[in-house]
Amino acid sequence: MIDVLLKIIVFGTVVGGIWGLVASGFSLIFGVSRILNFAHGAAFVCAAYVAILLSGSGFNVYLSILAGLAVSGLLGYLVYLLTRPVRKNEVMVIIVTLALALLIQQILLVNFGDKGISMLPLVQGFVELNNIKVTNMRIASFVLAVASLVSLDLMVSKTRIGKKIIATSQDSEAAMLTGIDVEKVLILVMVLSSILAGFAGILYAQIFAISPETSLKALIYAFAIVILGGLGSLRGSIVSSFIVGYILVLTITFLGARWSEFVMLLAIVTILVVRPTGLFGVEE
């Protein structure tokens, strides 16, 4: 019993950490701009592809990772540029970002095929905890993810930039009146969030593997987490990313792997139906 519990905590926490990086950015973007960034999964995948391809062709692995992060940041900026003219038009924002996501997915598919590619883990080996083998890479990913999430939370809640971000998400027009350059805040949030997603993608590619289809998977997880945590609530997203991680592992352990996707999707729909503002959300 202890074994099972430990297993659920260990595996759920690691997965939760990675998805937390994706979801927190998704949530931040929605918070400041009311944009549902359907192209968020693309940043996740693109960063990983760039890092893998560069390091595979002989570049230093850390520089390759940096390049991957830069590309995901650029992608965030691209989303900003593309959505700027239609920001007031909900329909078009959704359509434009969704089309961008699928466009990138197809470009990857045509050029690199549908098979997964993966990255050599930066740290090899594993440790045994009470008969459970946990790879060092998983532990490293967890530490890195939590460190990033904590610094993100600190940045938002403690720094001046963070105050601007909060002000903009609460009321962008009022923020503008108090002299905050809302556009700059938007750019910052979009780029930063995309880099976080890219970082998650690079970690994911080391533990698992990445393929063009992974972008949709990342998006769905981000969706699920953000809905659970409440749209626009950063801390809600962080907490619920771990909850989603545990649900996933619980499902695999007790119901069987075949139900993992189904239960996830069903859980999202149920939450939306029962408590549409999410567990930590506030009424709009």
Partner: peptide
């Protein structure tokens, strides 16, 4: 599909 999605983005904007 890439072409169609690009067209969609362009028209949307």
């Amino acid at each position: 599909e890439v072409v169609l999605y690009a067209v969609l983005i362009a028209i949307g904007i």
